[in-house]
Design a binder for these strands. Structure first.
Lengths: 341, 341
DNA sequence: CACCGGAATAGAAACGTTTCCAACGTAGGC
DNA sequence: GCCTACGTTGGAAACGTTTCTATTCCGGTG
């Protein structure tokens, strides 16, 4: 609806039409119990005939709050991230917030740019997964950040809330399971040591061997990146080794896609020729001719928790110390592993 | 950086420190060529020492523009949507815009809510894919919408830009291909007639039979929803029919997941027992023990085009009539089809 | 009947920027 | 040397809300 000049009606138009002051109209909207019923009626009638809706820009300006939160990730085409986003979105939306989604495509520069963008009144908070825990630009910006933030699966020497996963235990269990099946040449392909999941997964992997009194197969640890390409490249190389691994742990859901591509290309049969364990459920992991044994975790809960941590800072006056919440993993047996021959 | 009161520096602080007026500071930022070099120097020095950054809330208020666009879809966990989002995001970000991502989870009420949310100064434009082209609430809101919008793969009797796909031709080609392989009992599982892809795909499917002078197998047309569950349910039913189809076209990438689940459960072998054609590339379609023959389309280009259409309205003064741009499909042969026995 | 207290309201300031208009100074042309 | 024109600047209005303070109005009480 428009006023006489053809522009959207403002609170002033409502005030004029209902014969009250702008202050009263504002209170009618935001604190209706402080305004007399008959006045409220007049105001509401005017609002209805004018089709008035408060202007979000002006509210943001005056209230100093945008009701918007940034969600910064590598790549939304990663199904784990997509699920996580959904969980965060559901929780935040229930509290009136909307989400900016920013894909950084694995580039630290875009990460820094995203944080810059979100500052200075564009968002009230951020939830983010860094590509790299060492990038100085990003860390510097995070330290100066004037809005609350939550890290997803990352660890920084800063006072920032974080939601983590106990990857080490997950990998230890998975590796133990394979060792129990008689496997010794077990390979792991995962992220580099520059992010927590990479470090923790390798740690769990090595610990499992140590606890069994076996030497960890150092030549089969491929820890560098979570990308499809890295998974493909390393799996291809592993499968062509002289003393080929009898099992591969594809620790990362994009890595899994690359690994499966290599497996397909080299005509390897799962689980006959090779046992396989994946991380995180995805269409591919659940379907690949038979469900793949995988290290699962509760994405929805993780996302919801991150949102709740942020909401505590956003809505509450709570300025508690930074909190780290760690979620467990669960080994889900599929059909992709057989005893070693 | 903060001013004396511990709050972020404003343009006024900069003006005071550099000894010029706020107007001049503003022009130094937005039209530096209209301010004398020495003045510019003083202002820039002040900006640097104060660490001043303009407040986005105030800019939004004054400029009447948010540099934000809404992207409304069903489900970001759908890989096609995720890819499309990325393309749109890349293009929009290059022009300074950020994206609100709103998942509607297939509910028309959330669709309407999303549009409401985006109005009245929260976004400058919208790109959206509706769950249903008939929902009156959504249509009413779209008609009243005061910001430009672009529809993705949907058709409405409104003056709205749209980016479409020539699904009919794609389906015709795919169906012809199967007919050429000797298949007659060909099933199609796809969206309902309430959205364009559903209508067009069924149309192309039927036309292929007509052109070959064959009767279209009406009992094998399952047109209702794009969900995984629908794909699973219909594929399960089709596979248990007395006169089972010899080929299935899973026309929708979520449908494909459901179909593959049913195939797995009933121990059907592709392509030996059943030929299969999918729509849109996805990890699953490319990997499923061997790439599946699929009807492809250029997601990135589609997303980019949608973004460009919106940008024309956003930046330009162009108020051209609504435009519809249609993209072709391409049949990509995989290994999931064999001649009918 | 005057006064008091509380609830309801009017009015204005404030949020931080952009932009418009007027004023100023300087250089160039006559 | 004066007038004009232009480039540069200062100052103020404006964007549409929320919120604070002051005022009004009412009923009830002394």
């Amino acid at each position: 609806m428009k006023n006489l000049e053809g522009k959207a009606a403002t609170i002033r138009d409502v005030a004029r039409l209902s014969g009250v002051s702008v202050g009263t109209v504002s209170r009618s909207l935001n604190a209706p119990d402080t305004v007399r019923p008959d006045t409220l009626g007049k105001v509401r009638a005017a609002i209805k005939t004018l089709g008035f809706q408060p202007d979000a820009r002006a509210q943001t300006m005056r209230r100093r709050t945008t009701m918007t939160v940034g969600f910064v990730i590598d790549d939304i085409a990663n199904p784990w991230h997509a699920s996580c986003f959904k969980a965060v979105d559901t929780e935040m939306r229930a509290h009136g917030y909307s989400l900016y989604l920013m894909s950084t495509n694995g580039r630290a520069s875009q990460e820094a740019a995203a944080i810059d963008m979100l500052q200075h009144g564009r968002a009230d908070g951020v939830i983010l997964t860094l590509n790299n825990e060492q990038d100085s630009r990003t860390i510097a910006r995070l330290k100066e950040l004037r809005i609350p933030s939550v890290l997803l699966d990352r660890e920084l020497p800063l006072e920032i809330d974080a939601v983590l996963t106990d990857h080490a235990t997950g990998l230890r269990q998975a590796t133990n399971y394979l060792i129990g099946l008689g496997h010794r040449r077990i390979a792991i392909i995962t992220a580099g040591s520059d992010i927590r999941p990479g470090r923790e997964r390798v740690r769990g992997f090595v610990e499992a061997f140590e606890q069994s009194g076996l030497p960890a197969p150092k030549d089969l640890i491929r820890s560098q990146s979570l990308s499809v390409d890295f998974g493909f490249r390393e799996a291809s190389a592993l499968l062509q080794m002289h003393e080929r691994p009898t099992a591969i742990i594809a620790a990362g859901n994009r890595i899994l896609v690359g690994v499966l591509r290599a497996i397909q290309q080299q005509n390897v049969s799962i689980p006959r020729d090779l046992s396989l364990i994946a991380c995180d459920r995805s269409d591919v992991a659940l379907l690949y001719p038979g469900p793949i044994t995988l290290i699962d975790r509760a994405v929805e809960e993780i996302g919801r928790t991150a949102a709740q941590l942020l909401l505590e800072r956003l809505t509450g006056q709570s300025s508690r110390p930074a909190q780290r919440i760690t979620f467990p993993t669960h080994l889900i047996l599929g059909g992709s592993c057989l005893p070693a021959r």
